[in-house]
Amino acid sequence: MAEEYWRWKEYNWHSPDIDWKQAESVTAGVDVGSVSSQAVIMTDGQLFAYSNMRTGSDSPDSARNAMNWAMEETGMTLEDVQYVVGTGYGRVNVPFAKRPITEIACHARGANWMYGPGVRTVLDMGGQDCKAIHCDERGKVTNFLMNDKCAAGTGRGMEVFADLLSVSIEEVGDMSFDVEEEPEPVSSTCVVFAKSEATSLLREGWPKSKVLAAYCSAMAHRVFTLLERIGVEKDFAITGGIAKNSGVVKRLEQEIGFEALKPKHDTQIAGALGGALFAKALLEKERKK
C-alpha cells in the first residue's frame, strides 16, 4: 500500500497524578469533527485525560472510540462520567452525551482555559471549516464568523497537499520555509483548483518546498481575510489542527502584525475541552436545582 502522507499521529493521554475516584465532578466533552474526534475528561475542572483520533464514517462509533480510548488504563467507565457534552459536526450523534453544544461556544471556552482569560480572538482552523471568534474574559462568545462553505484554509486542504507532494503532514510547515525567497501565493483559494495549480507548478520544475510555501501563504491570506471581518484583538490564539502547522501560522502572524499565543496543550482538543467545561457548569446548575 502506498504511504499515507496525510495521516497524522493519533494518541491518548491521562494524568498520572489525579485520582479520579476522589473527584466531586467527572465531566467529559466529545468533539466529533469532520476529520478528527477528540474526547476530554475533566475531574473538578482539571484536565484528567484525553484522546485524539480520526473520525470514521460512523459518528456514534467515532464518539465511542474516542471516549473509550481516553478512558483506557484509567479504570474509568462511561457510568463514572456524570455529564457528557457532544460538540463538533457530529454533536447530535454522540449517543451518551446529555446535550449537544455548538463547537463555536466550546472552542472559545476551551481556548479561555488553555490560554488564559486574556484571550480575545480565537481562530479555529479545523478539518473542514474555519472559525473566527471573539470572546470575553470568561470565554463567552461575543462575535463569531464561520466559514464552512469550502475547504480552503482547513486541515483537509492541507492533507490533500501533503498527499499530492508526498510530504508527511507533520513536516509540511517546516519544509515550506525551505525556500530562497517567498513565492507568490497560489492564486486560487479553492482546494481543488489550488491542487491543479500546484500540479502545473511541479511540472514547471518548482521544488516541493516552494509549492508548499505558495500554498501555505495562500491559506494564511484566506484565513486572514476572514479574521479581518471581525478584527483581531490581542491576545490572539489559534486552535485546531492547523495551529500545529508553522508554515501557515507564521505567515498568518506576519499578515496580522503580531504573534499568536504559544500553545501549552494540544490545540486539537480545545473544542472537546470546552465541552467538558460546559458539562461541569451544566452539572453544577443541575445539582443546585
Binding site: 461575543t142 462575535n143 463569531f144 462553505k149 483559494t189 471581518r229
Partner: peptide, 16 residues
C-alpha cells in the same frame, strides 16, 4: 454577542 450567519465567497460577503 454579534452572531454572523453566512459566508464569504468569490462574489462577495453574505452575512446576516
Amino acid at each position: 454577542m454579534l452572531a454572523n450567519y453566512g459566508y464569504k465567497d468569490g462574489s462577495g460577503e453574505y452575512f446576516i
